[in-house]
Amino acid sequence: MPIDVAASVIANRSLSSDYNVLALAAPAIAAEAAPGQFVMVKARTGFDPLLRRPFSVFEILRDTRGTATGLTLLSKRIGMSTSLLYDAREGQRIDCLGPLGRPFTLVNPPAEAWMVAGGVGLAPFASLAQALHARGVKSTLFYGARRAAELFYLDFFATLDIELVLTTEDGSKGERGRIVAPLDRRLASRPASSPVMLYACGPDGMLAAAARTAMKYGRPCQVSVERIMGCGLGGCYSCVVPMRHEDGGFHHVRSCIAGPVLAGDQILWDR
């Protein structure tokens, strides 16, 4: 059951001129959150902005005894709400409702986990990587961004023994180009008998390419979609994704309650 808290800002760390990591004192939400779930955040009270915005839970913060003390959000400044979050000050209160949505389904060894992130689509993978590490799952992060300066938290993932495959659009770090290119090559060279689960989050174009690549090699792919959401609870029907229907047609599912994690091969990417 989701909890609504007026969470204090513990810290606000700027990663670049657009990206920040906001730490919120929301222990009750953090204690319940599973990798892939999200929270609905209102950047300030009043009618401007009016609605909350959805954010993946980035990290779960814990004290030395392992008790959840809060959570962080990875945010990219693109509009009013994200600008307010970028400028948020310590001690400021921010309404935070969660945890919401269906989380990732975790795999167990010997299956490997391959995470595919594009830009701010890195958001659900910090907590997923921790959960996979705790299970002893061998994991790889395929991570693409515009430029080297927008590849964040590389040390964090390296500490969890996660192999990093990086691309940048300008070639300033890793391979030049899009992240699905190295993903395709790795899948092509992997024996069919070696199980691998794909997890993808990023812009729709990247998600569609990742899902299609997974289908090409017969691999399952869980995608975390991002849609404009009104409520996050299934009330408004704003955040729909067209999914394959058994009758051959399609069905709009609400990504807030059926997702945000959905089966990549069930989404009608061209619709």
Partner: peptide
């Protein structure tokens, strides 16, 4: 009914503009 394609809502000043299409 399946309603309209996304995006179905957008926020406007102190307002919410929607066209869900009665899914």
């Amino acid at each position: 009914r399946e309603g309209h394609a996304a995006p179905r809502i957008v926020e406007t000043p102190a307002g919410l503009l929607n066209a869900i299409g009665l899914q």
